[in-house]
């Protein structure tokens, strides 16, 4: 039961990183791939209907940690206090910026909020988990830089897949540029992770391969496959991280010590089994409804 709930939480975090990864990327890139306000709006509209639902993956991951591994939840959030405060501040200004942008007289403040509010969590989640695994300022910096660039790449590929016209062309260039930075960073970051954990080696190598494939696919304009590859790259990176965390979710803490009692875990399992399929189904349906490429607003 404890292993199952660790798996559920790893799945929720992974879903969050994959889904919000492109939200963050699009948020950071929108002012740059959009030459004017219309194009910027076109870019942001690719994530408009979905970003809030994607963010709930984080809320659910953290809520599930609270319920299933209280000591892990409270230990993680209190020991990374200030970085988590900045993540929250970022999510606040990003969310407000996205919702208010079309309703204010001058969207410049909203744009600033969206860019900063996307960049902060994109960097900080990598830094927090890298510091947790490898303990040190340098790994934290490296991990943060890696997830920041990875989000940019993921977002650029998503934009190229979901838009048409000039934004699509600029997004492809942005994807190629960020891919060129992401690949060497991935090699350094993921091999550092693999060097401390044997279990993480296989997914780490697979993540590198997926990211290399993504770069090649975007070069050949296969945007759908390229997006699949960046999503796989992020998912495999997350898998490598959680395989390592399974041995010790926090320094000096085991999963069994952190876990709730079997009764609670059983109840949570039933609730998850009943609700999660519906959640996955209606979220997938949202993406289906908004599957058409976003055109310039007329």
């Amino acid at each position: 039961m404890i292993d199952l709930w660790f798996l559920v939480i790893a799945f929720l975090w992974t879903g969050y990183f994959v889904l919000e990864g492109f939200d963050f990327g699009v948020g950071m890139l929108a002012p740059f791939v959009g030459g004017d306000d219309d194009e910027q709006r076109q870019s942001l509209q690719t994530i408009g209907p979905v970003w809030d639902g994607n963010e709930v993956w984080l809320i659910t991951a953290v809520g599930a940690m609270f319920a299933a591994f209280p000591a892990w939840y409270s230990g993680l959030l209190s020991s990374f206090y200030l970085p988590v405060v900045l993540v929250l501040a970022g999510l606040i200004v990003r969310g407000v910026g996205l919702e208010w942008r079309g309703k204010v007289a001058n969207p410049a403040w909203c744009d600033l909020g969206i860019v900063v509010g996307s960049a902060l969590p994109a960097f900080l989640w990598g830094a927090i988990f890298a510091d947790l695994l490898l303990d040190g300022a340098l790994p934290a910096l490296l991990g943060g830089a890696f997830t920041l660039v990875l989000s940019l790449l993921h977002g650029a590929v998503f934009l190229a897949l979901r838009t048409e016209g000039r934004v699509r062309r600029r997004a492809r260039v942005a994807a190629l540029a960020t891919g060129a930075v992401a690949l060497p960073l991935a090699v350094v970051a993921l091999s550092t992770l693999a060097s401390v954990s044997g279990a993480a080696t296989v997914p780490a190598l697979a993540a590198m391969a997926a990211l290399a494939a993504a770069a090649a696919l975007i070069w050949r304009r296969r945007e759908g496959w390229a997006f699949t590859a960046t999503a796989a790259g992020i998912a495999l990176t997350s898998a490598a991280v959680f395989l390592r965390l399974k041995q010790a979710p926090l320094p000096g803490l085991t999963l069994a010590e952190a876990a709730s009692a079997p009764y609670t875990l059983t109840m949570l399992t039933w609730i998850g089994l009943i609700t999660l399929p519906f959640v996955l189904a209606y979220q997938a349906w949202t993406y289906w409804v908004f599957r058409k490429r976003v055109a310039l607003p007329r």
């Binding site: 809030d52 639902g53 319920a67 409270s74 609670t264």
Partner: peptide, 28 residues
């Protein structure tokens, strides 16, 4: 949190799974 998570965390997790996903996805 460590003291109450076993009890208090469950409604919070249910809130996210049953309510927040529905609210945000359908509002989008």
């Amino acid at each position: 949190s460590t003291f109450v998570g076993d009890v208090f965390g469950a409604p919070l997790a249910m809130e996210a799974l049953l309510a927040f996903f529905m609210e945000s996805t359908f509002l989008g």
